[in-house]
Design a protein around this nucleic acid. Structure first.
Length: 761
RNA sequence: UGGGGUGUCGCCAAGUGGUAAGGCAACUGGUUUUGGUCCAGUCAUUCGGGGGUUCGAGUCCCUCCACCCCAUCCA
């Protein structure tokens, strides 16, 4: 990985590798085998395997199988399939948390011996009560006082299966009053008399996620443990277990990213399961399902899913990705790959009455358009009777209609231009057939007719066409953020039983995915397709700007009202803040405003913060410039204070006073002061010493500055032009360049004046 | 309500004090025997709101607001 922009996880890995924290990156994809993986898993897979690949590391596939009641081998197969289908390869064998049960048990025993874990015999309800709530602390169980020996004995007997489920649990002894609920003596083990699909009846106790996960990561030598946002609160416990057990470094660390949400889709296992169980869809691999198996059956390519995962990025903001982004990815991929063929979804017979009944011919048609660099073609039978799509003919065409009408000829793609002569109706008055004539000299590729048509439509020859079943899939839900079954799109599947397709598709099988020209991308259903009864799934439609235009002209009587800029919300006056101050704070506030003459914003900020306030007063003793000192303390000192975890700061009030003097005297600029600040916080050196050592004295001499400015102006003629054309934001660019050239030492005020006068010329 | 997180275009998302990237969507126009593709172009005077610091703030400080997660013997 070189210099291109990286997501925050890759930056962390890069940093850790550079600093030598780890010599190699090891990640893992750790699903619980209790359901079919979906596109959200694809994101996690791409992240874990992708990062390992990008940094020359390894990625493990681990089944997090600590709950025997929910897991099943069919899911481990589905997960393995999904990873392989996405073209990733896990390092070594598939791993299982259940393989570590013995070691995990030993770690638990160790915790007990350290007095850091105990067997609790409270009931489930009691445990819940004792835990407290998010706002009230919990209280510890009386059983927490059990001796190490008793705990050891009990835990051993739990393991052997001497107790009923729920009778005892093993808990970590941490803090029942922790603000983090996950730290209130979390459960480590519970009794389960269930058969585990791998370990059978060997164990009667099973580790909980929090205990198993960090240790499994550690056992496997994982360095970076990526998971989704909802585990943020679990990180403290993850670290606590590894730290308390004093496992030898290198230790794994957990980082969280936002899980994928897709519009018009549900992603939770529970809701997906409901769809399957209630028969809303036909199983986990129903082409409408967001499962990997579903997309695969629908006809999505692994490349398109990967491209999608790439495009959506990795971040920490909860987001809802537009499904249109996914649709773009599959269209984009298939456009470059698949053969174009003709299939008529809603056949309308056309008899070409000037074409001899006895005659027929074969037309040569390429499988790929001019812009797809692939070779291949097939023969297209042509005769007196053909079928076109019903929507490609209109007796009363709307404005802008390019297709066949009584007055408008059209080209049959790869064949001739035809003209409608007569419309034949059935007893209900509907168009049943069209009688047309063709222009013999308009043959595709050797057209000498001189007739101009607005469009070319697809068609099939009546005798040779094959009847096929088409499954037209649409979004499963009708709302952007569906809650559940109540939001199902009733038209998510339309089955067309008697579409007609050109014979070569069935006979030659040039591919399994096709573009049915002007309709969409289709995939020969891997389960139900047979040569006798071909079935195609619609993967996605083509973009259709005609349909879009129709829709907008039909349903857009009013132009969309431009949303007004929302008016500024209620202003907050500093005096409002003063109102919320306590007695002491108010006194301080008054003192700062009246005696020291500080502005109220500053005064209130100081008055509300003990540490800042006393620091401020200390600095004042060394240098009595309340306003300047207050600014420094409020902005700079406050930052350093926030950034230091332990509340310690690497500088003294006297040093801040010194810094203030240097700024006031013009020795250094504010910009440099910031730099000095950071240096001070780190090195604990005196500001003056830092300035001298690093040569940070401000440059205000035009004699020095002017040549630099001219240089900057000379080397950015484009920006000079833009600036002169009115892009005043660019002013900062020039100043910035000069500052950069002087390593920040130029006096910005002087530079501003100078740049301004130079640019005027 | 305690704690942990997150707010940049309709949807994603870069951005680490010096010109608000990019993709999707949308919208022009061109090419086209697919109303597809492709090509050219348009689309954030502003970053949840308000103050402050600074020559200069999406980035630093203060404050308010909104949303998500945590009280399964699930993961």
């Amino acid at each position: 990985m070189s210099t291109e922009r990286k997501d925050f996880l890759r930056r962390i890995v890069e940093e850790d590798l550079k600093s030598g924290k780890y010599s190699e990156v090891v990640t893992r994809f750790p699903p619980e085998p209790n359901g079919y993986p979906h596109i959200g898993h694809a994101k996690a897979i791409t992240i874990n395997f992708g990062i390992a690949r990008d940094f020359g590391g390894r990625c493990h596939l681990r089944m997090d199988d600590t709950n025997p009641t929910t897991e099943d081998p069919v899911y481990v197969e589905a997960i393995k399939d999904a990873v392989r289908w996405l073209r990733f390869q896990w390092d070594g064998p598939v791993r299982y948390t259940s393989d570590y049960f013995q070691r995990l048990y030993e770690y638990a025993v160790e915790l007990i011996k350290m007095g850091k874990a105990y067997v609790d015999s409270l009931s489930e309800e009691e445990i819940r009560e004792y835990r407290g709530t998010v706002t009230t602390p919990g209280k510890r169980s009386v059983y927490a006082q059990r001796s190490v020996e008793e705990n050891l004995d009990l835990f051993e007997r739990m393991r052997k299966g001497e107790f009923a489920e729920g009778e005892h649990v093993l808990r970590a002894k941490i803090d029942m009053a922790s603000p983090n609920m996950k730290m209130r003596d979390p459960l480590l083990y519970r009794i389960r008399h269930a058969r585990h699909y791998r370990t059978g009846d060997k164990w009667a106790v099973y580790p909980m996620y929090d205990f198993a996960h960090c240790l499994s990561d550690y056992i496997e030598g994982v360095t970076h443990s990526f998971c989704t946002l909802e585990f943020e609160n679990n990180r403290e416990l993850y670290d606590w277990i590894l730290e308390t057990l004093k496992v030898s470094p290198p230790r794994p660390h957990q980082y969280e990213f936002a899980r994928l949400n897709l519009s018009y889709t549900v992603m939770s296992k529970r809701k997906l399961l409901e769809l399957v169980e209630k028969g809303v869809v036909n199983g986990w691999d129903d082409p409408r399902m967001p499962t990997i198996a579903g997309y695969r059956r629908r006809g999505y390519t692994p490349e398109s899913i990967l491209a999608f995962c790439d495009q959506i990025g990795i971040a920490k903001a909860n987001s809802l990705v537009d499904v249109a982004q996914l649709e773009f990815c599959i269209r984009d991929d298939l456009n470059k790959k698949v053969p174009r063929v003709m299939c008529v979804l809603d056949p309308l017979k056309v008899t070409i009455d000037n074409y001899d009944e006895e005659e027929s011919q074969e037309l040569e048609a390429p499988y790929y358009p001019h812009d797809v660099p692939k070779e291949g073609s097939r023969k297209l039978p042509f005769s007196r009777e053909i079928y076109i799509d019903r929507k490609d003919f209109s007796e009363n065409p709307p404005k802008g209609y390019y297709r066949l009408t009584p007055d408008q000829p059209v080209r049959l793609r790869y064949a001739y231009i035809i003209r409608c002569k007569e419309v034949i109706r059935d007893e209900k008055g509907e168009v049943a057939e069209i009688v047309a004539e063709y222009y013999p000299d308009s043959k595709s590729g050797s057209d000498t007719s001189g007739i101009k048509v607005k469009s070319a439509i697809h068609w099939v020859e009546a005798n040779s066409a094959r009847r096929v079943e088409l499954r037209l899939y649409d979004r499963l839900f009708k709302t952007e953020e569906p809650k559940g079954i109540e939001d199902i799109n009733p038209d998510s599947l339309k089955i067309v039983k008697d579409a007609l397709i050109e014979p070569a598709v069935i006979a030659e099988k040039p591919d399994e995915r096709f573009q049915f020209e002007r309709e969409g991308y289709f995939y020969a259903d891997p389960v139900d397709y047979s040569d006798d009864a071909p079935v195609f799934n619609r993967i996605v439609t083509l973009k259709d700007s005609w349909a879009k235009k129709q829709k907008t002209t039909k349903s857009k009587p009013h132009p969309k009202p431009k949303t007004e800029k929302k008016p500024a919300q209620k202003m907050q006056r500093p005096s409002d803040e003063a109102a919320s101050m306590g007695e002491e704070e108010k006194k301080l506030f008054d003192y700062y405003t009246r005696k020291l003459g500080l502005r109220s914003e500053m005064a209130s900020t100081l008055a509300r913060d003990d540490v800042l306030s006393s620091f401020f007063k200390e600095v004042l003793k060394h240098h009595n410039e309340p306003e300047n000192i207050a600014k420094l303390v409020i902005n700079e000192v406050a930052r350093e204070l926030k950034n230091s975890q332990d509340g310690r700061i690497g500088f003294t009030p006297a040093q801040i006073a010194e810094l203030a003097e240097m700024i006031e005297s013009g020795l250094i600029s504010n910009k440099i002061a910031k730099q000095v600040f950071e240096e001070m916080a780190k090195s604990e050196e005196n500001p003056r010493a830092i300035v001298e050592k690093r040569g940070l004295v401000q440059i205000a001499d035009p004699e020095i500055l002017l040549p630099i400015i001219d240089e900057v102006i000379a080397s950015n003629p484009g920006n000079v032009k833009k600036y002169k054309e009115g892009n005043e934001r660019l002013f900062g660019f020039f100043v910035g360049q000069v500052l950069k050239a002087t390593e920040g030492k130029a006096n910005p005020k002087v530079v501003n004046d100078l740049v301004s006068s130079r640019l005027e010329k």
